[in-house]
Amino acid sequence: MIQAIAFYLFATMVIASGVLTIMSRNPVHSVLWLILAFFNAAGLMVLLGAEFIAMLLVVVYVGAVAVLFLFVVMMLDVDMAELRAGFIKNFPLGIAIALVLLAELVLGIGALGAGPLELGTASGANAPNLANSNIENIGALLYSKYIFVFEAAGLILLVAMIGAIVLTHRDLKTTRGHQNITKQVRRNPKEATQMKQPTVGEGVEL
């Protein structure tokens, strides 16, 4: 009962916030609705027993990606009127893509009949031990069977990082704002100050 209530709650919220994402007039509202959709999708994952994926969804998408997204949308002055003009122009293309996605959905539902997916080798010989929690199963698979793909994915992230640095890093010629903390900490009063006792009217030589 409680599961059913929770499922319908989350499912309705996902769909409603998905609709509102594309319907809102304000782009910031759109992003916020999108975040709500992510969050409720995470709820659905928990109901499926995939708590690890659910948490990752929140940590990665809601906690990091969407924050940056929100950040950018807030900084940009998005003119909705202009976007709407583009909407009319690109409407046929949008419909075409929507039709493709619809076809995909129909096919996807049809695929339910193709039988369950095998998680092990092609023959299913190495299927994981489902007795463990899914966090352990995912870890065991990632670091054994899929080690090659997993590590190569790490390389992709490294390349993305190199790329971002190569394209944006500039050697600053000025030293403004640069701070050598060790140097600052090492400074002591003896080196930094001078005791002078000038007589009246003589002044201080700097």
């Binding site: 910031v28 690890f52 940590v59 990091a64």
Partner: peptide
């Protein structure tokens, strides 16, 4: 069983209160 991850997830949400207020 993912308690710590849950805390990490929830604490990453707390930024929204601040960002939304500011905006």
């Amino acid at each position: 069983n993912v308690g710590l991850l849950y805390i990490l997830a929830i604490s990453s949400l707390s930024v929204y209160g601040v960002v939304m207020a500011g905006w």
